[in-house]
């Protein structure tokens, strides 16, 4: 095959793929702007005849989606901040502090990493119930406040910190806490950034655990609220699409802004042996 012909064919395939990848998202946005009923007209339309924000207004005024948005933001931010703190502390300790049994303990954690999380869900619910944390934001955040994978990634990165640097600071009389704050955290910044994006997106998108723990609809996160909304409003296609846009758009924008770090993050997590 001649090169130019091959090149045109390849781009054609990519173009079709790109349209297929984006079409559902584009239709979601278009339908959210259609007047009521237009998304279910026949023949189906792809673009709104006259764009309207009426469904967004209804979501904010009658269905109080602002509060739901706040819940999602709170849960995702809190989980990200707390898990970054806990994972970086533990990861640093496993990488750089010398204590008996360190490598055996870390090895045991790695073995436990292969256990699929859903097995833990039922007893975890009973445990949170006995702690009075069911239907609280803490019940969503705490179980995710530290993960073996997070500790593992930080440890891998922290191993690159030179021991001499830490020992020199110790000889200068710096305490361990100061060492962590002034030397370790700044050096861990690249891995902390990627981990922060990955954690925030994962928490924002999470469904099953908030669905189980949050029983009061005033505390629902966006995915839980959407799933419950589709039960009552399945006929209101345009309204549901507006809700989906509000859920998807923040993470999509965040990704577009921080794409480089995010993709570095997942390749890091994926290729570490």
């Amino acid at each position: 095959m001649k090169r130019p012909v091959a090149s045109v064919l390849l781009h054609l395939v990519l173009l079709v793929g790109g349209v297929a990848a984006l079409a559902p998202l584009a239709w979601m946005v278009a339908a959210s702007l259609m007047p009521t009923g237009e998304a279910n007209s026949f023949p189906p339309r792809f673009l709104p005849s006259r764009p309207t924000l009426v469904h967004y207004r209804e979501l904010f005024t009658r269905l109080n989606i602002g509060r739901t948005f706040g819940s999602s933001l709170l849960v995702a931010s809190a989980t990200t901040i707390v898990s970054l703190l806990f994972n970086s502390m533990a990861g640093y300790a496993f990488a750089k502090l010398r204590f008996p049994g360190r490598d055996r303990l870390f090895g045991a954690l790695l073995v436990a990493m292969v256990i699929p999380a859903p097995i833990a869900m039922l007893p975890l619910f009973l445990l949170l119930r006995s702690l009075g944390l069911v239907n609280s934001y803490a019940g969503v955040v705490l179980p995710a406040a530290s993960t073996i994978l997070g500790v593992f990634l930080i440890r891998q990165f922290a191993r690159g910190i030179p021991d001499d640097l830490l020992d020199a600071a110790r000889l200068d009389g710096a305490g361990e806490l100061k060492l962590y704050r002034k030397i370790v955290l700044p050096l861990l910044r690249p891995v902390l950034t990627t981990l922060a994006i990955v954690t925030f997106l994962a928490t924002w998108n999470d469904f099953i655990w908030p669905l189980i723990v949050l029983t009061d609809e005033r505390r629902y996160t966006l995915p839980v609220a959407l799933a419950s909304l589709v039960g009552e409003h399945v006929q209101d296609t345009e309204l549901m699409m507006a809700g989906s846009v509000l859920t998807v758009l923040p993470v999509l924008l965040l990704f577009l802004l921080l794409q480089k770090q995010y993709i570095e993050g997942i390749t890091l997590g994926g290729l570490k042996e």
Binding site: P223, L226, V248, L252
Partner: peptide, 12 residues
Amino acid sequence: PYITTLVAVAIV
């Protein structure tokens, strides 16, 4: 698509 919220795109 990988970034999007599963519940939202499942509804779409």
